[in-house]
């Protein structure tokens, strides 16, 4: 552990610095920490439901119109957010439960494409180049970041915006650089300083977005 992190760690887990090895006390602290984190995520979801529900329904209606026009959903993010992009894509493409499959894929899936772009040009073009090669004006670009500052997401949204795609961004903290972009049509910010709680809330945001979008697509099908 770095010296700088110690005061924060000591405040969070004072028992670590009290000497001895009292296992029951440590287990009790870990239980309390679990309960506290559960309360944090429920509160964060409550805040997001209050601030973003109307815009989530509007984004879903626009996404449904894009699917009806032949568009596809293209999802991207780095690290843990890359796994969220993959979850979002497979949720649309292979939802199960009798839900209607919709075309979607994630831009971190193909290790040949990812390593070629990173090695030959740089990680900052990783998603923008793929959107330029694959994307059409009917498509939906969804980018996920916890910081909102990833350069390859900023470039991807600028590319998607230029091409007329519907653009949806998920960020954390106060939205970072993504909050300053005109190229994002719908930005959903999870206002937290915890990367973990941000990711958990973002998972709910895109699950709700999916559920509303599938319902909106079904609505478009009705005469």
């Amino acid at each position: 552990m770095s010296g700088g992190a110690r005061p924060e760690m000591e405040a969070l887990y004072p028992f670590l610095y009290s000497g001895g090895s009292d296992l029951p006390a440590v287990l009790a602290q870990v239980r309390a920490s679990t309960v506290a984190k559960a309360a944090e995520i429920t509160e964060l979801r409550r805040v997001i439901a209050g601030q973003d529900s109307g815009r989530l329904a509007a984004a879903a209606a626009e996404a449904a119109a894009r699917f009806a026009a032949g568009g596809r959903l293209l999802a991207f993010g780095n690290g843990g957010s890359a796994t969220d992009a993959q979850q979002l894509a497979t949720l649309f493409l292979n939802p199960g439960s009798g839900a209607r499959p919709l075309p979607a894929f994630a831009l971190a899936n193909d290790t040949s494409v990812v390593t070629a772009l990173c090695n030959d040009i740089g990680v900052e073009v990783l998603f923008a180049r793929q959107l330029a090669a694959i994307g059409t004006s009917s498509d939906i670009a969804v980018g996920l970041s916890t910081s909102g500052n990833s350069e390859n997401l900023v470039r991807a949204f600028e590319e998607a915006g230029r091409r007329g795609m519907l653009t949806i961004g998920l960020a954390g903290y106060a939205g970072g650089k993504m909050a300053e972009l005109d190229s994002i049509d719908y930005l959903f910010v999870a206002p937290s300083a915890s990367v973990h709680r941000i990711q958990e809330a973002q998972t709910t945001v895109y699950h709700v977005l999916w559920e509303l979008t599938v319902a909106a697509v079904a609505g478009l099908d009705r005469p």
Partner: peptide, 23 residues
Amino acid sequence: GVPAGRDAVRLFGLRAAPVDDLA
């Protein structure tokens, strides 16, 4: 069947009880 903001609010609300169970 047209989704509205209240549907989103309700979907978010469905998460609270299972989180309490995790706690």
